Simulated scan of single mutants.
Amino acid sequence: MKHDERPDWQPTWRKPVGIIVLLVALTLYAVAIASASSIIGQWHVLLQTLVYIVLGVAWLLPLRRFLIWMETGRWG
């Protein structure tokens, strides 16, 4: 084991901080989407459905790399 590596059993600060950042970011994202609902609500129902499906899945795109960072400290 190198000097700067931690054993697998030692906790790191990344997990609790990552969980807090994730919760705050998802809350802000949900508030932003909810505030845009007055505009989106005026569109055709099929377009609304498509937009909400895309926005509902879009937050998952950066999640994998973020979870890898929480676990390993690397971004990929």
Score class of each variant (00 low, 15 high):
G18L: 06
G18C: 11
I19N: 04
I19G: 02
I19S: 03
I20L: 01
V21W: 02
V21G: 02
V21S: 05
V21L: 11
V21P: 00
V21Q: 01
L22N: 02
L23G: 05
V24D: 08
A25E: 00
A25P: 00
A25L: 00
A25C: 06
L26A: 07
L26D: 04
T27I: 05
L28N: 07
Y29W: 08
Y29I: 01
A30E: 12
A30H: 10
A30S: 15
V31F: 06
A32F: 08
I33Q: 11
I33F: 14
A34F: 10
S35F: 15
S35D: 14
A36N: 07
A36Y: 04
A36C: 06
S37I: 08
S38A: 13
S38L: 11
S38G: 12
I39E: 07
I39G: 04
I39R: 07
G41Y: 10
G41M: 14
G41Q: 13
W43C: 07
W43M: 10
H44K: 11
H44W: 03
V45D: 09
V45P: 08
V45F: 10
V45G: 08
L46A: 15
L47Y: 15
Q48W: 09
T49D: 13
T49C: 09
T49W: 10
L50G: 15
L50V: 15
L50Y: 15
L50A: 14
V51T: 07
Y52P: 05
I53A: 14
V54S: 06
V54G: 06
V54I: 14
V54Y: 04
L55Q: 02
L55W: 03
L55A: 04
L55E: 05
L55Y: 03
L55C: 03
L55T: 01
G56H: 07
G56S: 04
G56A: 08
V57H: 00
V57L: 11
A58E: 09
A58D: 06
W59A: 00
W59S: 04
L60K: 14
L60P: 13
L61A: 15
P62V: 06
P62E: 10
L63P: 01
L63E: 06
L63Y: 06
R64V: 14
R64G: 11
R64Y: 13
R65G: 13
F66R: 02
F66L: 11
F66A: 08
F66T: 03
L67V: 10
L67M: 11
L67R: 08
I68Q: 14
W69A: 05
W69L: 03
W69Q: 04
W69G: 03
W69E: 03
W69T: 05
